[in-house]
Design a binder for these strands. Structure first.
Lengths: 359, 359
DNA sequence: CTGTTAGCGCTTTCAC
DNA sequence: GTGAAAGCGCTAACAG
């Protein structure tokens, strides 16, 4: 035989956590009863007296249950995985905050996996989450660009769901899974409406890169909103660009240099808008909002610190995360087609927008 | 007996993950060999041929190891807990980013626990982390205010370490555990030196609340730096306040209203500095930096967006997190007194500071 | 180098 | 309502 059945010699390493067995002995009940008293359905199946004794014993011995053992026995870990690009990015930070809050309410632990935008790392983490036997995984952000990668990602996800794991995406990345996202079209509509009401008729648009689902939706929303007002977006008023401040700056420079009669810039991302603000002030020397109004999309906190403070459409990022977790939990028997939840957005008017110059 | 030993009737729930047992059978080896080939020390103790077969079988069956089972058998979970106040706070977000990065390098998963500044939640999470049998826990932020709570916290930590868990604090909260923090005194010294070199001699100080270890150190550093230059800090130039933008604003208002001859404000926190900037511009109408210079401490990203952009001392938050994890891992046999690591800081000169007015 | 086997701590039938 | 016992999937002696 391998080891002596029980009775640790007191020379063993000190990390001898109290076990349910010991609690049971201390309380003078069977281990099964101890288990039921401690973790079973509340109030059911254990006599008041015994339950009391077990609880007392547990407290006295400072018993802490062993989650891995429970996970093994129950094949449920009360843990979910959360895969994001970069936690230092306030966009993801807000989502994580929402997930954390919801997880707490449901007594779940969350394993955080930051991929730093490396697709391979994402695959790797998904696998690890599966290894952990997480009850489910929330996928925020995916560089679903190249098809080869997308296929592997899909495979990995399939494996995960086949083992009984749930998957919910936060933000649409074209994956075949339940999805929680913001209403991008409505965000666009709100931004356009705001500018329109201020009298702007020549609006430059800084859009995101083609292929990004959200960016496409936003652009589509802008087009519709403009068309609905009888002023379809002329191609020369549109520039597509990566979502960085530097790109926003150069794209805005280009746009405003060529199209000198624009009275407003609608950027589909706060970061882009920040870049536009910078070039307007430092390169083009055009007053905001006196000469040109600027509006962004996203509503991240930093927009309040910009100068002038940015008018933007706020995305409910925290709720996005919380809702995603809820959706994950709501799926006891996930059958049928993929579910989609779109959260509403909200216009935040600040100092970067004003009436169109009467010129 | 309870269940039939093996052979799942094909009607069982589909979540039948492949087990090591199955891999072993498929490869025609014992389960022990399979285990060694898959998880054992690289290259050791398994013949090349068998190893190959096991690996092939694993791949073919899409085997994913069961972390809870491993954790149970090895009594190590390859998981660490990370307790923070609020992930949406960029301060913590940066720390988490650093921890994530380091965790990845060490093949560790991190369980994130956000307490939202509720002491009870912190206690609860610590317990849960213990429940998860995490190999260690990183403690960033603790509302170590009331002694009763501090005692309970200490107790919980003791329980954790007694079970073999490691603890490292990020930022000093007076807990008896290894600690990683920034060099607050040096940060103060850098800020003072910068202002002094610009000719400022009457410097107002916005300090943090007494009792906060970091805040105390910073104030101490400021006092020393000033004294070393032959200009001890007069009490009327000092105001202590909570670390919020609103408090910073009102504290700055008070300070600058009473002490009209100050040429600079040194805030021990970026947020406070932001408040000072606001009141200077909107309430007091004093030009920054022409009339008054402002410097902060922390170097969070938003300081670059302030107007004018804030001169500040950057804390290496990401490295703080990474270093903390390293420290956690470095402690194979943690004996002796608590270890302390102080990370260096760096002055970032921007637009909010300039030469003292010659007056 | 490989196989056998006894647990790791807990849940969950099944029988009383 | 309570207890006995069979695993959950894996690791680590121990024996060859």
């Amino acid at each position: 035989m391998a080891r002596t059945p029980r009775a640790r010699s007191s020379t063993e390493r000190s990390s001898a956590a109290v076990t349910l067995q010991q609690v049971a002995e201390h309380a003078g009940v069977s281990i099964a009863t101890a288990s039921r008293a401690l973790h079973g359905a509340t109030g059911r199946s254990v006599g008041e007296e015994l339950r009391r004794r077990v609880l007392a014993a547990a407290t006295e011995l400072d018993y802490v249950s062993n989650a891995p053992a429970q996970a093994l026995a129950r094949s449920r870990s009360s843990t979910i995985g959360l895969v994001i690009h970069d936690i230092a990015d306030p966009y993801f930070a807000a989502i994580v905050a929402g997930v954390s809050r919801a997880a707490r309410e449901h007594e779940l632990m969350v394993m955080l996996a930051a991929t730093f935008r490396e697709p391979l790392l994402e695959l790797d983490y998904l696998r690890r989450v599966r290894t952990q036997r997480a009850d489910g995984v929330l996928l925020a952000g995916s560089g679903c660009t190249e098809p080869a990668f997308a296929a592997r990602l899909a495979d990995t996800l399939t494996g995960f769901t086949e083992d009984g794991g749930r998957v919910v995406c936060i933000g649409d990345h074209g994956l075949d899974a339940d999805l929680v996202t913001v209403d991008h079209r409505r965000a666009a509509e709100l931004a356009v409406a705001h500018l329109w009401e201020l009298g702007h008729r020549r609006i430059g648009v800084l859009a995101g890169p083609a292929g990004l689902v959200g960016a496409d939706r936003q652009l589509d929303g802008i087009r519709r909103a403009l068309a609905a007002r009888g002023a379809p977006l002329p191609p020369e008023h549109l520039t597509r660009t990566e979502l960085t401040r530097a790109d926003g700056r150069s794209a805005a420079t280009q746009l405003l240099t060529k199209q000198t009669d624009l009275t407003a810039v609608l950027a589909v991302d706060d970061t882009l808008a920040a870049g536009a603000l910078t070039t307007l002030r430092d390169d083009l020397h055009r007053a905001v909002p006196a000469e040109v109004s600027v509006v962004g999309l996203g509503g991240l906190p930093f927009t309040a610190d910009l100068h002038p403070s940015l008018t933007t459409v706020r995305f409910p990022l925290e709720r996005l995360g919380a809702r995603a977790l809820e959706l994950l939990l709501e799926a006891p028997e996930r059958r049928g087609p993929r579910r989609t939840v779109e959260l509403d957005v909200e216009l935040t008017v600040r100092s970067s927008t004003g009436p169109a110059p009467s010129d």
